[in-house]
């Protein structure tokens, strides 16, 4: 018998999941992109669809060039759903498919979505992806689908969930043992695969977690935070 029934109301208050992305560490290797594809049953867009700009990457590496060749310098910025505390995508959804979870995730409920795509327009980060067609995977990729993640049908919006299946799994273990999720117990696929540890994930409500400590770094900023979206992701970048 467990102490509490609501996973999101553990002893010591709710969680608030967040991430820190250290741009000074990011090499743009795109391991996170691949890991995310494998973990989250992200459909294969194919050459034709990708050329139309419909490639789906819940996390993408944005490349920005500075200067002219040969003195060009490239900068990388992984962009994924910022899980905004005050998300522009949420109030515009007519069916509450896009909403906020009590543990600070910006959620997309696939089976509720009717596909009006307003959330996609209103997201300043353009990190919401739409299923233009019924998803498909070439052989043998269809054999490696993650059973813990829904395969999104045609006509629904999808986006980064901070690998909620892993969060919920850790929460259930913690709940069984009557404790909070420990720092580092949950790692989304992108964080797990990052070779330079540029990505760090954890509970922002825990002042001692790595995320909380890193986000207080004076290099920190939120992407487009001037819009008042209160993103849960802190980027770190040394300004030269």
């Amino acid at each position: 018998m467990v102490e509490y029934r609501d996973q999101n109301a553990p002893p010591g208050g709710p969680y608030r999941w967040g991430m820190v992305i250290d741009l000074d560490r990011c090499t743009g290797c795109e391991a996170c992109v691949v890991a995310c594809h494998a973990e989250n049953n992200i459909r294969i867009s194919g050459e034709e669809e990708a050329s139309k700009g419909r490639a789906v990457n819940w996390i993408r590496i944005e490349r920005y060039w500075e200067g002219e060749y040969p003195n060009a310098q490239v900068k990388f910025m992984p962009v994924l759903c910022q899980h905004c505390g005050s998300a522009p995508c949420e109030p515009v959804c007519p069916v509450y498919a896009s909403y906020h979870t009590p543990d600070g995730l910006n959620a997309q409920v696939y089976n509720r979505c009717v596909g009006v795509r307003y959330c996609g327009n209103n997201c300043p980060y353009t990190v919401r992806y739409f299923n233009w067609f019924e998803p498909h995977w070439d052989e043998p990729l269809n054999e490696q689908l993650n059973p813990d993640v829904t395969v999104r049908s045609v006509g629904v919006m999808e986006k980064c969930t901070f690998c909620v299946q892993r969060i919920r799994g850790a929460q259930q273990t913690a709940q069984k043992e009557g404790r909070r999720v420990k720092d580092g117990e949950v790692t989304p696929a992108c964080v797990q695969s990052c070779p330079t540890e540029a990505l760090v994930f954890g509970d922002r409500n825990d002042p001692n977690s790595r995320v909380s400590r890193l986000s207080k770094d004076d290099r920190g900023f939120g992407l487009l935070e001037e819009l008042g979206t209160e993103p849960s992701i802190t980027y770190l970048k040394r300004i030269k």
Binding site: D6, N8, A9, T101, P102
Partner: peptide, 13 residues
Amino acid sequence: RNGASKDCFTCHY
């Protein structure tokens, strides 16, 4: 009735 989680993300993800 049982005070369990009423979050969509409990069952749908």
